[in-house]
Simulated assay, not measured.
Amino acid sequence: MKISIITVCYNSDATIEKTILSVACQTYKNIEYIIVDGNSKDNTIEIVKKYETIITKWISEPDQGLYDAMNKGIAIATGDLVGVLNSDDTFKSNTVLEELAQFHSSNVIDASIGDIIQHNDKNEIIRLYSSKNWSPTKLSIGFMPPHPSIFFKRDLFDKYGLYNLSFKIGADYELITRFFLKNRISWKYSRITTTSMLVGGVSSSGYSSYKLITKEIKKALKMNGVIFSSWIINTRFVWKIIGFVKK
């Protein structure tokens, strides 16, 4: 089973070497590693070239943003499974991909979902973001599994399409809604903590981003014919807080 890992980046010279090395250190070796760079102006490409024996394919050219770059990576991927590793994130352990390969070999599924940990720039863990209690119906109230923990069969993108570029920060929510809820792909919770993720990404950086992602969640649900309550979507942060307090 070949696993394609896609890293998209732009001016990521401060973090991308750790990301590349976390792929290189995997005990599982049937990996296709693809880097899609948005024509970086810093030293990102020099670092990428340093690890050309590890990287299967890389491109550097202007793009329309994060999701356009992801689509480019998927278009050239040839693996049985596809996963995304952001350019400031790392795999949680050296055995993550080996564990995922075993899990998919043991289960007839289209996708697996898992857990991630989030840390700050001091490398202090501030959250375990788990899929344990998630189900596709929770998309209708504004909750999705952590995107980096999801590994999809490659042919799903041919059947159901790529990331929708009309979204600024919510294309992952729309794609997950389209795959899991509209088209009802088969899936299973892997219990694998796949990724160590640096907080402060494009969809988690303040009130303005919260307003935008709220708007785009509603747009994603409407596009896929999902009935939802605007009030619940607008106040979903309250339910998150309640969930944390209960835990």
Rank of each mutant, 00 (worst) to 15 (best):
residue 111 A to V: 12
residue 113 I to V: 15
residue 114 G to I: 02
residue 114 G to F: 10
residue 115 D to F: 08
residue 116 I to M: 08
residue 116 I to N: 00
residue 117 I to S: 10
residue 117 I to N: 12
residue 117 I to P: 09
residue 119 H to R: 15
residue 120 N to K: 06
residue 120 N to L: 05
residue 120 N to D: 14
residue 123 N to F: 11
residue 123 N to L: 11
residue 127 R to V: 01
residue 128 L to N: 11
residue 129 Y to I: 09
residue 129 Y to V: 11
residue 129 Y to D: 14
residue 130 S to V: 03
residue 131 S to E: 02
residue 132 K to P: 00
residue 133 N to K: 12
residue 133 N to A: 06
residue 133 N to V: 07
residue 133 N to M: 12
residue 134 W to A: 03
residue 135 S to E: 12
residue 135 S to M: 09
residue 136 P to S: 01
residue 136 P to I: 00
residue 137 T to M: 08
residue 137 T to W: 09
residue 137 T to L: 05
residue 137 T to F: 08
residue 138 K to T: 04
residue 138 K to Y: 14
residue 140 S to Q: 12
residue 142 G to E: 01
residue 146 P to E: 02
residue 147 H to G: 00
residue 148 P to R: 02
residue 148 P to V: 01
residue 149 S to T: 08
residue 149 S to P: 15
residue 150 I to G: 02
residue 152 F to E: 02
residue 152 F to H: 08
residue 152 F to W: 13
residue 152 F to P: 04
residue 152 F to N: 02
residue 153 K to P: 05
residue 153 K to G: 04
residue 155 D to E: 12
residue 156 L to N: 07
residue 156 L to W: 09
residue 157 F to S: 04
residue 157 F to Q: 01
residue 158 D to E: 10
residue 158 D to A: 09
residue 159 K to M: 01
residue 161 G to S: 10
residue 164 N to K: 06
residue 164 N to I: 01
residue 164 N to C: 06
residue 167 F to L: 02
residue 167 F to I: 00
residue 168 K to S: 15
residue 168 K to V: 13
residue 169 I to M: 14
residue 169 I to L: 14
residue 170 G to I: 10
residue 170 G to Y: 13
residue 172 D to F: 11
residue 172 D to G: 08
residue 172 D to V: 11
residue 172 D to C: 10
residue 173 Y to E: 00
residue 173 Y to I: 15
residue 173 Y to V: 15
residue 173 Y to R: 14
residue 174 E to Y: 10
residue 175 L to C: 03
residue 178 R to W: 07
residue 180 F to T: 00
residue 180 F to S: 02
residue 180 F to A: 05
residue 181 L to Q: 04
residue 181 L to I: 01
residue 183 N to Q: 02
residue 183 N to E: 00
residue 184 R to I: 01
residue 185 I to W: 12
residue 188 K to R: 14
residue 189 Y to G: 05
residue 190 S to N: 03
residue 191 R to I: 00
residue 192 I to G: 12
residue 193 T to I: 13
residue 193 T to N: 08
residue 194 T to V: 08
residue 194 T to W: 04
residue 195 T to R: 03
residue 195 T to E: 03
residue 195 T to H: 09
residue 198 L to F: 05
residue 200 G to V: 00
residue 200 G to C: 05
residue 200 G to N: 01
residue 200 G to F: 12
residue 202 V to M: 13
residue 203 S to I: 00
residue 204 S to M: 07
residue 204 S to H: 09
residue 204 S to R: 10
residue 205 S to R: 13
residue 205 S to N: 14
residue 205 S to A: 05
residue 206 G to H: 02
residue 207 Y to H: 13
residue 209 S to Q: 13
residue 211 K to D: 07
residue 212 L to S: 00
residue 213 I to D: 03
residue 214 T to Y: 08
residue 216 E to F: 10
residue 216 E to Y: 11
residue 220 A to Q: 07
residue 221 L to K: 08
residue 221 L to W: 11
residue 222 K to M: 05
residue 223 M to H: 12
residue 224 N to R: 11
residue 224 N to D: 03
residue 226 V to G: 07
residue 227 I to Q: 06
residue 229 S to T: 04
residue 231 W to L: 13
residue 232 I to T: 10
residue 232 I to W: 09
residue 233 I to G: 04
residue 233 I to R: 03
residue 234 N to C: 08
residue 235 T to G: 04
residue 236 R to Q: 04
